[in-house]
Design a protein around this nucleic acid. Structure first.
Lengths: 236, 236
DNA sequence: ATGCTATTTGTACCATCGTACAAAAGAACA
DNA sequence: TGTTCTTTTGTACGATGGTACAAATAGCAT
């Protein structure tokens, strides 16, 4: 929207646009989309409500811009890490590297801000829970490619597991990831203070460790001899 | 609120109160708390907006009543299943039984309605993501006991794993559970139609299989020789 | 300084929200 | 049938929501 980047433009004084984006990201990620008003965002950013309309036209537009801002860098970083992980020779190590390549960028942003990755991932978690339309569209068309790439990579390192099972398990991984960012205090509470749910480094290690084992679990078909009544479908 | 249960009371004709509860549960679980208006709920239930106020006083009161309705039966069923699971001799089988005791009631209600358990669990997932205050309070004081019971039971069957690790892994399980109920279509999409994310029986088996393996993963301490910079804290 | 453009402010409109409340309708029992 | 209590309806009020828009302001090139 700006025309004259005469060496400042991005580094204007307090840069309202960025402040609004950051405030919105924070509020949306914490309280959900509908619970936060444009006025709340403006107030948190030290801006005027009208300013939000000026920069992003609508509230949806603001959310859209947040996604645009993060999706590219995050997927890029994931792709890089995935490519590196695929080059690991040992299959066990490779699997761990792949999982790490998936998890790490979700906790720590690959581009600008410090905890930006975690904040944005939490935002995605919340939007997904709320069934937000804007988010749903972007997510499907932006992350599915990356998700498939990861699933394929994992499948390559675990050829004896049906792809369907890997899809389920990677789905569980994303759920665990989301939930860890949404309710970290629950971990602290249930561990009676022995663990800090907000400690990203620790969360990552725990998640990688558990997830690698989950992926390595035997496939479903050969594991459950006879029990459930309705399945009958999934196979490979 | 009713005074004369002359053998009907609960089984009145279309029972508005129940219809409102069901509609609210459904809408909240799908769209979140703030996105749904009292008028939406009334409309979906075929009731009058004022009727909601009459029965539940406030919108928060309505949510509260939904929780009250489900928490008891669900925890009861979980306790029963957990008690049965603890009696399993073989440690491997016992662990699986415990996980199943945790997962199954979340997908299928223990009391009345068919998919009620899944619907309520999804509702909890969404409320947790939105940071809903009413839900947060009830959850902590209603589910933490059960959660501790499960964690202890799992710890008993895996004595060599530090309790902290088990807390993390059970947290991941709940995240996976929530996410599977919130976005089942993602599983169908990523598996290119080979799996049905909405198939509860299949989801349960996949989740149990993966989670048991995750719990059985080696403890973190002995697994990560030297890597991260900040941890230093958790130990047992 | 002067004009030009990008931004910020202030305000106002209209829709919708949660909730209150009086009136109507129904149900149960004398 | 009339009385009483419960439930449902209809409507209204005040607050807050998203968004539009004119006026004010600030930066920059000339």
């Amino acid at each position: 929207m700006a025309r004259k980047p005469t060496s400042k433009e991005t580094a204007r004084k307090p840069n309202m646009r960025e402040a609004i984006l950051a405030a919105a990201e924070d509020l949306f990620a914490t309280n959900g989309f509908n619970a936060v008003s444009v006025r709340d965002i403006a107030h948190a950013a030290g801006a005027n409500p009208g300013s939000v309309t000026y920069h992003f036209k609508t509230k949806d537009g603001l959310l859209l811009e947040i996604y645009r801002r993060h999706c590219g860098p995050m997927n890029l970083r994931r792709s890089e890490l995935l490519a590196a992980a695929r080059r690991v020779r040992d299959l066990q190590d490779r699997l761990e590297a792949i999982v790490r390549a998936y998890v790490v960028p979700a906790f720590t942003s690959g581009s600008d801000l410090a905890g930006g990755g975690a904040r944005f991932t939490r935002l995605r978690a919340v939007m997904s829970a709320e069934g937000n339309e804007v988010a749903r569209k972007i997510i499907a068309q932006t992350f599915d490619d990356t998700s498939h790439a990861f699933i394929d990579a994992i499948h390559d390192s675990l050829p004896h597991i049906p792809r369907t099972d890997i899809v389920w398990r990677s789905h569980f991984l994303l759920g665990a990831l989301y939930y860890s960012l949404v309710t970290p205090e629950r971990v602290s509470r249930l561990s009676r203070g022995e663990a800090d749910g907000s400690d990203a480094a620790n969360a990552i290690e725990q998640m990688v460790q558990a997830t690698v084992a989950a992926f390595q679990a035997p496939a479903l078909d050969q594991a459950v001899p006879a029990r459930r009544p309705t399945v009958a479908s999934n196979k490979t």
